[in-house]
Nucleic acid binder design. Structure first.
Lengths: 142, 142
DNA sequence: CCTTGCCTTGACGCCTACGTCAAGGCTTAC
DNA sequence: GTAAGCCTTGACGTAGGCGTCAAGGCAAGG
């Protein structure tokens, strides 16, 4: 099949396939007129890449899976290098999730604090002599 | 104080401050020779921005906080627009954390499956006639 | 013959938050 | 006077994964 069909069958674009090729992840034979040709094996390769991309893997991280399939293994993750990538990704995800949860906590606390502060105005907020600050996008006022 | 000192006191760089200024987030008076001058208020503003940035807020998302401080409020989150940003960010974080946890689950399952598959070789993996696939970066072999 | 639709390579655009270099001016210390 | 260290604006570079023209070739249908 040619590039358009492969792209369609994998739910992506020809631009993406050429990009993968430029990165050395997807190779193609050529017909007499220079058109790229692919087979079912290439589709399998491409689907492996796309699946990992959907998981948030960098393109470079998909390389071991691709090479594993190219080496003739039944699955992209049949090789130790691929398993290593899985493990690194799990660590990354755990770390990232942990950080995000910490941030979520802090932001939640900030919101709670700010909301309660709105109810009990600070002593210096209405200190005599200063003009009343006005919120820029509050609407209604004025 | 001048830009270098402000940057140092906020733990950032002069480039960053000029960038913020170009984005309209940080303004500066000028001395006779054209140097930027800042006061303690600017430092407070800058610290507000930096704190939010550390939380992963986009620069644009810090704008309501900055304008709130500029309007004379005691805190950057003393304005409803800032609270809105907090809430949106909480939603985003919850959604993101949820997605990441789902991905983490799937990757974990993939890893488990691939590891167990390694122990019990597939029936077709050693089908007679096909050459033994070789892992590219396994070392040792050969 | 002409249009349509697929293909080719090349190359700039995007987006964020700056890093980094270039060329030059001001001030201060020595 | 000159070197050091601060400042100025301008402008290109980075990273990732493509999107989006541009200009042109090839094949098939009418």
């Amino acid at each position: 099949m040619r590039i358009g069909e492969l792209a369609a069958r994998a739910g992506t674009t020809t631009r993406t396939l050429r990009y993968y090729e430029s990165r050395g992840l997807l190779s193609a034979r050529r017909t007499g007129n220079g058109y790229r040709t692919y087979d079912e094996n290439d589709l399998k390769l491409l689907r492996q890449i796309r699946t990992l991309q959907d998981f948030g893997f960098d393109l470079e991280e998909t390389r071991p899976f691709v090479e594993c399939l190219r080496a003739g293994h039944p699955e992209g993750d049949s090789c130790p290098a691929s398993l290593q990538v899985y493990r690194r990704k799990l660590d990354e995800l755990d770390a990232l999730i942990g950080e995000l949860r910490a941030v979520r906590e802090k932001v939640g606390q900030q919101l709670a604090r700010a909301e309660s502060a709105r109810d009990e105005p600070a002593a210096d907020a209405v200190a005599p002599g200063g003009p009343e600050p006005v919120c820029e996008l509050g609407g209604e006022l004025r």
